[in-house]
Computed example of a mutant assay.
Amino acid sequence: MTATTATTAAAGRSRLRSRRARLTAYLYVIPALMLIVGIIYVGVVYNSWVSTLDWNGLDPEPTQVGGGNYARLLADPIFWTALRNVALFGVVTILVQMGLGLLIALVLSGPVYGRGVYRAVVFVPVVLAPAAISAAFRQFFRPDGQLNALLDAVGLDALQRAWVADPQVALLALMAVNVFSWTGFSFLLYQAALSQVEASQLEAAQIDGAGTVRTVRSIVVPQLRMTHVTLALTGVIGSLKTFDIVFLITGGGPARSTEFLTTYIYKEAIMQFNVGYGAALSMIVLALALLLTAVQMRLYRLDRES
């Protein structure tokens, strides 16, 4: 065998091993792709078809209405109320969570005694089951619950309310539950981001005479911009998907004051058997989520290019 023949044979074996390696990689990926395509994408296509039907989910011969469900949706005051509630809920909770999360991360980034314990306490609500949190806060907000008892004990009995039965404050009560549940997540991301801030910049600011507030505002906060964007957009998408605490604490009431898109979809599709209309509502939620995801990806791309 000549040297050229041996080299050709070795190259052939190398290509064969490379093809086998690629094939092995595809075999590992195929089960996940089957699940994603079969459950998510096929489900989305099927749901979009159902959204064009007047169907109760049981009738073997549903009526095709085309865009009738979407026209009904645009004229539905409950839909607009739910969308407004989601928007207000998202804006308030995201701003509060981000503010509290950053504040706690800044405080615990210093030499604080028992810092590990405080970090655990802040993060624990993130991993608690929403059902457990909802049951606890439902009791907490009762007219004879702990919150009103605390207000009475400190002489603020004039502020006592039936918190989740009063249309004027029920949404605020749900915001408080969400802030309690997810501030720890904001804290965790900010804590990780703060570890990437250059210590030399902070030292230079101190040498120049900048105080703590000025240093945080002018140096720390700008360097956390992508963390801000991530928390804002994931918070908005999370608000669109919020269902458990609303359904378990208020059920969307009283008087639709805490109705969300998710609870409205559940009531229409599952409780009222308006499956076609519920599917149209869910397609709107999907469209909003995709739009926000596209915005997030665009912002990340711009940040990398800058």
Score class of each variant (00 low, 15 high):
E305C: 01
A10N: 09
V122R: 00
I207N: 04
A131P: 00
L286F: 13
L290V: 14
S48F: 07
S109M: 08
T262V: 06
V91L: 15
L33C: 08
P130G: 11
M297R: 00
V221F: 07
I249A: 11
T63M: 14
T52P: 04
G66V: 04
A289W: 03
Y26G: 02
T227D: 06
T81N: 10
G57V: 02
L189V: 02
A173T: 03
F79K: 00
S14R: 15
Y118Q: 12
M271R: 11
M283K: 00
I237G: 00
R298P: 02
V112R: 05
A11L: 10
T215W: 03
F247M: 11
D152N: 10
R217H: 13
V124F: 12
E61Q: 14
M175P: 01
V29D: 00
L159I: 02
M226T: 00
L128M: 14
F137L: 02
Q97K: 15
R15W: 09
F141T: 07
Y118N: 13
L53P: 00
A120V: 13
V216Q: 10
D157H: 14
G238C: 09
L58I: 08
A287W: 10
G251E: 09
V124K: 01
S200H: 11
L74A: 06
M175E: 06
L103T: 12
G66E: 08
Q201D: 02
G66N: 04
L174M: 12
V37G: 13
T5N: 06
V236H: 01
F180V: 03
M1W: 07
R217F: 13
S306T: 09
N69E: 13
